[in-house]
Design a protein around this nucleic acid. Structure first.
Lengths: 137, 137
DNA sequence: CCGAATCCAAGCGGATACTG
DNA sequence: CAGTATCCGCTTGGATTCGG
């Protein structure tokens, strides 16, 4: 969805349709790990590729590389490469623009936390999940 | 992705992993039209299916029905059916829980608006989009 | 008016292996 | 260390048709 929506939104914008601000924002972190990446990078100066790879649990290098590339293209993060004893090192860090997204992510975090706490999971969901995953047909 | 992520998140929660509040929130309106639906319903008392269908531009009935169903399952919207001269009518309206999501959507709107205004679209994007869409191979 | 049913396309992410 | 290169399958959404 990510890329599709991003393109659609940008097309709209170039045609003067400005009724897609929300979608635009959503598209920014639609991608399975973008939110986590932003979150992680929002809390430290910078991270290496493999640091992110280790900390993000479940992601593959290919996918991680893809997400980073998109985030960089949207200018939410920055990629800096430099040499150190004849080796190229790369760090990723959040951009100023990316910083401005953190309050929203934070609100999402608060909302999710609240919701998880005082509602807990509806029993119907629990059942659905339990019936769904353990037994693979 | 939507449903996949939702299930993953719920599975995590049932297992005591509570490190997915952001993803949980994101999953709530990950779906191409959920945000717009929430937005629309956030501004009026209620809407009929076809009202939404007309106002949402580009959506098909099947997809709309699907998104509404998911939103209702997540209890962000409510579906009320009632009879009127021997015809069943249905209205959708936002739930109290859904209301609590509106501030976030609003922030997304503000962010998107701001970004669209003062950055405009990078020329590279414009070109990419223009080269991409008009000519269908 | 409010969808459900069917069929189909492609996007997005996953697995694995390989590279400078 | 920081990625590419392939291959591949599931999910999501689109087109169209049909029904109560």
């Amino acid at each position: 969805m990510t890329d599709v929506v991003r393109k659609q939104v940008l097309t709209k914008l170039t045609h003067g349709d400005y009724n897609c601000e929300k979608e635009f924002t959503l598209a920014m972190f639609s991608g399975k790990y973008k939110l986590v990446i932003l979150w992680e990078l929002g809390h430290v100066k910078s991270m290496h590729f493999n640091e992110l790879f280790r900390v993000i649990d479940g992601v593959t290098k290919k996918v991680l590389a893809g997400q980073l590339k998109e985030l960089a293209a949207d200018q939410l993060i920055l990629r800096d490469a430099y040499m150190e004893n004849n080796r190229e090192l790369v760090v990723y860090r959040i951009s100023d623009l990316g910083q401005t997204l953190l309050p929203i992510i934070d609100q999402m975090y608060q909302w999710g936390k609240q919701r998880v706490q005082d509602y807990q999971i509806p029993a119907s969901f629990k059942l659905a999940v339990e019936n769904d995953l353990p037994k693979a047909p």
